[in-house]
């Protein structure tokens, strides 16, 4: 940027505005870390509980879900480190953060409902999948990233399908749901962000 007093035409003004706005618009919101962390955690817990419940006599198969608070802790530490590095806050970034905070709270509410209501856990996955659907669909639309949108839409369908199945099968449907809405889009988002970082140096 040269001295401030230099004369410049309306066209140059417009070009400057366009070029500056493209600096902020182009940045991919790279929250793939969370999608991959939670994706693999939930996938592992769902499949793990299914295997323990179906193929072993281990009575405390549900203990695998104690990995969820660990995920919460890792997310919190990672999130606070990232916020120290962040030099620009966008409206979209904030909207996504608030959306996921609301979804995290909704998961805690669902957990309490499942504990308080007898056999509530039997339909738990229907609502969990619905939460994944809302989170990934809205995030995908906000950052204009199709794999997340598609994953979200598939999860809306899976939420309905899951009602027809017993809890054991719901575990597997949950694993598929998280695979298509978190894990696959998570890897695609990560590689897109890496490509963009390489381009922009």
């Amino acid at each position: 940027m040269h001295t401030e007093e230099k004369e410049f035409s309306p066209q140059q003004s417009l070009d400057l505005i366009r070029s500056m706005i493209s600096h902020t618009r182009g940045a991919v919101v790279n929250n793939s870390f969370y999608f991959l962390l939670w994706g693999w955690l939930v996938f592992g817990c769902s499949v793990g509980q299914y295997l323990l419940k179906t193929y072993t006599a281990y009575p405390f198969h549900y203990m695998v879900w104690w990995l969820m608070p660990v995920g919460g802790l890792i997310s919190a530490v990672y999130g606070s480190r990232q916020s120290k590095k962040t030099r620009v806050r966008s409206f979209v970034g904030d909207a996504i953060s608030y959306l996921w905070i609301a979804i995290a709270l909704a998961f805690i509410v669902l957990l309490l409902v499942n504990i308080m209501r007898e056999k509530g856990w039997q339909v738990a996955f229907t609502y969990y999948i619905l939460m994944y659907a809302i989170g990934t669909f809205v995030t995908g639309k906000l950052i204009e990233f199709k794999p997340l949108v598609i994953g979200g839409l598939i999860n809306f369908v899976l939420a309905v399908v899951s009602v027809k199945f017993a809890y054991d099968e719901q575990l597997l449907i949950g694993a598929v749901a998280i695979l298509v809405s978190y894990i696959i889009p998570g890897y695609l988002l990560r590689s897109k962000a890496r490509r963009q970082n390489q381009t922009h140096g």
């Binding site: 940027m1 003004s13 400057l16 505005i17 500056m20 706005i21 600096h23 902020t24 618009r25 030099r87 620009v88 806050r89 966008s90 409206f91 970034g93 904030d94």
Partner: peptide, 13 residues
């Protein structure tokens, strides 16, 4: 103008 153009599309920088 460059500063304003950057700030117009973000919450803060």
């Amino acid at each position: 103008l460059a500063v304003m153009s950057l700030l117009i599309s973000v919450k803060e920088a």
